[in-house]
Amino acid sequence: MAPVSAMLPRWRLYSWSNNLMSSGTTLYLKGAEFQYPDNEKKVLKGIDLEIRAGEWIALLGPNGSGKSTLLKLFNALLLPSQGCCFIDGINTNETKSVALIRSKVSIVFQNPEDQIVASVVEEDTAFGPENLGLRSDEIKIRVKEALISVGLWEKRKHAVSSLSGGQKQRLALAGVFAIRPGSLLLDEAMSMLDPASRKSFLDLIKREHSSGCTIVQVTHRLDEILNSDRTVVITDGQISWQGKTENFLSISENELKDMGFAKPPVAVLKEELVKSGIIPGSTRSDIGEIRKKLCLLQ
């Protein structure tokens, strides 16, 4: 697997030219509730949430708190049973806009096996654009861009079954990139990957975000959210904490543990060093930045 950095200059040539300049979508929930038809218990109980274009939101919460359901509201896979959901100002319950909404908001699920449709790499990547009814040469361009950006262009004719887990998840990402959405929803998309694949996947998300895409990321692991702007914690169908990610990470280790989260070691280190005045309080919880600050001091 080629390192992502090695692919960057080439990728730039195929940058998302017109689309990404128009940047990310805004996602908006107003008093959203959700309840499955045959179940009395409400999964979501009145969520108000506004996500600005280009923002990176980390959506946290224990298993079964309703995070995944919330994501499905954003691309009209589910409709709120009360309240409403708007994507770039379009209400998701307008049936005729569903296609438009889904071309603006894409989702990557946990298990790559569940979302790859075709047996050959490039055919799967083309699935989304094919459904959009694009011209054949446009589809080919998008497929090429998407596969180059995730580092699978060389494997475009390969069988999906010959890919590793990490490669499969990057293929799932390519399938979504080819739709050129303005926002990307990640439903524990990295939880089945090993650390190396996770890192290269996260690098791809960072790049998407830096080119203007809105990111909503559901995860259990706080070491994956270090790059996010805002953290939203959902407990039992309600927002129980919300604020800047840096503020969330500076909650004490024990308190976080009570909330059900492991404080990332990097955040612990930063806090300890800030406490004793070795690095400035403005340092982000990022190993690269801590390293830089320490070097400057020496």
């Binding site: 070691p265 612990v268 280190l269 300890e272 060093l273 070795i278 320490l294």
Partner: peptide, 15 residues
Amino acid sequence: TSDPYRLAEQIKAAK
């Protein structure tokens, strides 16, 4: 070490 507390302590001591 892979323990952030221990690493922080050592850095403090070095300072």
